[in-house]
């Protein structure tokens, strides 16, 4: 097994501080997937936020990409132990999408084309912490990496950054998602190494 130490050749200054416990640095972008890649035509693509009161907020592809965007450069950390530093994205902040959403819900269940789900507290999607990302490193987001659009929540393990995102359901009670019901941690903070349910 390859391990990286503080003296690993080629490491740039500061990288050690940006690598959570138990992670190793990778330069490529591994493709992980729990199923076949869905291909959604852009004219049929939509993103929704469903509130606990039954209100549905809906954006077409044209509407989403016409919204003000940000270009975050962030480190990402996969629970399978690779981390990738300084990745560049373009996407719409969830703060923009939640501007007109009235809710008292504490929890969000993110769902994707293809059936994947993941849960997280609503607070972790707000205040500049999450985006619906549709460009990566200056290009359209490839389907293998979740295109046309994926959730980007870089402060949590990357399984929370749902590929092929389709919508967010707001809930008053927490509802564990795909990996969270199969042994993975409910929250998934890489800096506290919350990989498995008992961590």
């Amino acid at each position: 097994m390859t391990t990286f130490t503080r003296g690993f050749r080629g490491r740039r200054r500061g990288e050690d501080d940006r690598l959570p416990p138990g992670q190793y640095l990778t330069e490529d972008f591994p493709v992980l997937s729990a199923g076949p890649t869905p291909h959604v035509p852009l004219d049929r693509w939509e993103f929704t936020i469903d509130t606990e009161a039954g209100q549905v907020h809906r954006w077409t592809w044209q509407e989403l990409t016409a919204l003000p965007y940000e270009e975050p450069a962030v480190d990402i950390h996969c629970v399978t132990s690779w981390s990738k530093l300084g990745t560049s994205w373009r996407g719409v902040s969830l703060d923009v999408l939640f501007e007109d959403v009235e809710t008292t819900a504490d929890y969000a269940l993110v769902h994707s084309y293809g059936g994947y789900t993941t849960n997280l507290p609503l607070d972790d999607l707000l205040d500049g912490k999450a985006w619906i990302a549709y460009r990566y490193e200056g290009e359209e987001l490839a389907a293998s990496h979740g295109g046309p659009a994926r959730l980007l929540v870089p402060h949590l393990y990357f399984w929370k950054s749902a590929k092929w995102v389709r919508g967010i359901r707001l809930l008053t009670e927490d509802w564990p998602g795909f990996w969270e019901t199969a042994g993975y941690h409910n929250y998934g903070d890489p800096w506290r190494e919350q990989r498995y349910a008992d961590d």
Binding site: L32, A34, G35, G115, W179, Y184, Y196, D198
Partner: peptide, 27 residues
């Protein structure tokens, strides 16, 4: 599908998940 945090076995007919297996260090 094994390039994932666990093994996900899907039906060859409808592609729904039939079995999932995650191995943590102690379970």
């Amino acid at each position: 599908y094994d390039r994932a945090p666990g093994l996900v076995a899907r039906c060859p007919g409808c592609e729904e998940v039939v079995l999932r297996l995650v191995r943590s260090p102690d379970a």
